[in-house]
């Protein structure tokens, strides 16, 4: 049984269609990428999966359960969310932020228990920021802040994490730090990830690291191509979706690994 199964969903605001007849599934231990130009409906699709928006028709099953009409806490135990950019308000400590990942397990009038605190420490250790636990998260760098968001998602103990451009606004190194962290998590914990991104090379990065990776190209509110990064992210398809000229190159890093990357060349036809 697939972890996430999306069957023929449509979504729209009034007259405007945002998602047209979308179907896909995400299996355990797999990372699934949504690629496509701005406004193609990636974030809307993620919001549907998270139960924030209700599709006009079609079904979304999480672990075999239809999410239509189930409580937010039930969804939050199946799928966690790492936002593109988190708007910081009050200077909470890192520990307090990650602790909020436990909300779906804690009753309305209850406070977190010792067990919840232990899960928080474990999540912080998994992404390698245990030493930051007492720091105010407003004083962290962008990369560290995003690691806190990933730790919070891990504290939710879900089999699936949805990430919406988790490396947006990050510098060159921290983008790589986030990617490495996700690779380690998928390897060690068997997590599944559904990620929207603007960078085709992210998909190649995971494929290069021998993680089960699939990509879908979205355009005009529907899926155009889906498959492995090598199949889907071809020079022809990139031309079709983004209307750019690009080369896909491959560079051997050791005997049985090669590093595949997209190099954008020009926007001229």
């Amino acid at each position: 049984m697939p972890l996430l199964e999306v069957q023929n969903i449509n979504f729209g605001y009034d007259q405007r269609d945002v998602l047209k007849d979308i179907s896909f599934q995400v299996n355990k231990g797999e990372i699934f990428f949504l690629l496509g130009p701005n406004g193609c409906g990636k974030t809307t699709l993620l919001d549907c999966v998270l139960g924030l928006l209700r599709p006009r028709n079609g079904n979304i099953h999480l672990n075999g359960t239809n999410i239509n009409g189930i409580k937010p806490e039930s969804i939050a135990r199946q799928v966690a969310y790492v936002p593109q950019s988190h708007e910081k308000t009050f200077p909470y400590t890192v520990r307090d932020i990650v602790l909020m990942g436990r909300a779906s397990y804690i009753g309305l009038f209850a406070s977190p228990s010792e067990e919840d605190m232990a899960i928080v420490e474990e999540a912080l250790a998994l992404v390698g920021i245990l030493h930051l636990r007492d720091r105010r998260y407003t004083q962290l760098s962008g990369g560290e802040g995003q690691l806190v968001m990933i730790a919070r998602a891990l504290a939710q103990k879900t089999p699936l994490i949805v990430m919406d451009e988790p490396t947006a606004h990050l510098d060159f190194k921290h983008e790589l730090v986030i990617m490495e962290t996700i690779v380690d998590l998928v390897r060690e914990t068997g997590l599944s990830i559904l990620m929207a991104t603007h960078f085709p090379n992210h998909a190649f990065y995971f494929e290069n690291n021998d993680i089960a990776t699939r990509v879908t190209l979205m355009n005009d509110n529907r899926f155009l191509r889906a498959g492995s990064p090598t199949e889907v992210l071809s020079e022809d398809n990139l031309k079709l979706i983004y209307n750019i000229n690009a080369r896909v190159v491959s560079y051997p890093i050791d005997l049985d690994h090669e590093l595949r990357q997209v190099i954008p060349i020009s926007t001229n036809n």
């Binding site: 139960g51 937010p72 969804i75 909300a103 939710q156």
Partner: peptide, 16 residues
């Protein structure tokens, strides 16, 4: 605390 994360995040954290 959880509500102060904003509607979208609070909802995905499992709060009505």
């Amino acid at each position: 605390n959880v509500l102060s994360m904003g509607d979208k995040e609070a909802h995905t954290l499992g709060i009505n």
